[in-house]
Simulated assay, not measured.
Amino acid sequence: MDGGVRSNARSVEEVFRDFKGRRNGLIRALTSDVEEFFQRCDPEKENLCLYGFPSEQWEVNLPAEEVPPELPEPALGINFARDGMHEKDWLALVAVHSDAWLLSVVFYFGARFGFDKADRKRLFNMINEEPTIFEVVTGAAKKQLKDKSSASNNRSSNKSKPNPKTGKPSKGQAKNEDKRVDDDPDDIDDDDEDDDEHGDTLCGACGANYASDEFWICCDACERWFHGKCVKITPAKAEHIKQYKCPSCSNKRARP
């Protein structure tokens, strides 16, 4: 198993890119690939760990045999708790341990490459701008955004109605809008506020922030937004979907 230690990862930016790649892989395992992840965590097998790689891939595998290992090891034996807990609680627990592992890997690199106090602080601040895996998996990040939006804009929480000024799509519709120019200055201000709000929206698969030039779609079951590319939905396909369910919600329904 390749731990992903790279000889050129010697700057704060390089280590942060390594962190984001591993984080995206772990988020994918616990969201869009959750059915496959569930099956791989067989409680009948030995102690298993969830690894994330800089390439945004993930793997469930045995811990490294060498002592000490090349990198800090993830939580051991995540498979043993799979059938003894509610699935949501189990995934949340794995997410917490994954967050802890990511930080240990990041600061291992920081120590190995001789980061000083200023570099460590800058690296942590860059990491802290991203929601944790736990927040993405449990929907806490979205809830915080919704509460903030409700308090600041006093808008209706009913997602079934599109915004009449921006034409932004509603729940279950494709979120691929262009910013509209309006002759009314008040309308322009409202558009800016709405863009700011959507700019904090997080993809339920990769955890990245919303951008207006990307195609997004919302799950009618869990109400999380997803990049179209992350869930393999195109604008053309979205036009024919009456009620969209993300891979995670679809798999839960299909599971016996």
Rank of each mutant, 00 (worst) to 15 (best):
W216E: 02
A236F: 00
A140Y: 12
D190G: 00
A254G: 05
T138Q: 03
T31L: 04
K143F: 04
R255C: 02
L30A: 06
L91K: 15
D119E: 15
C203W: 01
V96A: 05
H97I: 01
E13I: 10
F124V: 01
K20M: 14
N209H: 09
P235E: 04
R23S: 10
T31D: 05
N79L: 02
H198V: 14
V231G: 00
F134H: 13
V96Q: 12
C218A: 14
Q57N: 09
K171E: 14
F109L: 07
R253P: 02
F16Q: 01
C41Q: 07
K242P: 03
P169A: 14
R40V: 06
V34I: 12
R28E: 13
V15F: 03
K142V: 13
D119M: 13
L48W: 07
W101D: 03
L50S: 03
E129V: 09
S7M: 11
V5L: 13
L71Y: 07
L123V: 03
R6A: 09
I127S: 04
E135R: 07
C49H: 11
S150P: 00
Q173R: 11
D89S: 08
V60K: 03
R6C: 08
R112V: 09
H227W: 01
S11T: 15
N47K: 14
K159C: 12
R112D: 08
N176G: 15
D184F: 03
K237M: 14
A205I: 00
S212T: 05
V106D: 00
L102K: 05
M1G: 12
K175M: 08
D83W: 12
S7N: 09
P43Y: 08
D191Q: 11
W101M: 06
L76Y: 10
E177P: 14
G199N: 14
V181W: 12
G114W: 06
K117E: 15
K179T: 11
A111K: 15
Y51C: 09
A254D: 07
G110C: 07
C206F: 00
P256R: 11
V96G: 02
N154Q: 15
A75M: 08
P69A: 12
L202D: 09
D2S: 11
D42Y: 03
A95K: 00
D213R: 05
P162D: 08
V15W: 03
L71S: 02
H198M: 14
S170W: 09
A111Q: 11
L93I: 01
S104K: 04
A238T: 00
R28A: 15
A174D: 02
Y108R: 04
D42F: 10
P72N: 09
K146L: 15
H227P: 00
P185E: 03
N163F: 13
K232R: 05
D42R: 05
L91Y: 14
A9R: 04
A205T: 06
Y210I: 00
P235I: 02
E197Q: 09
E70L: 11
G139C: 10
D213L: 06
G114C: 09
F37S: 09
K245S: 11
A151F: 12
S149Q: 11
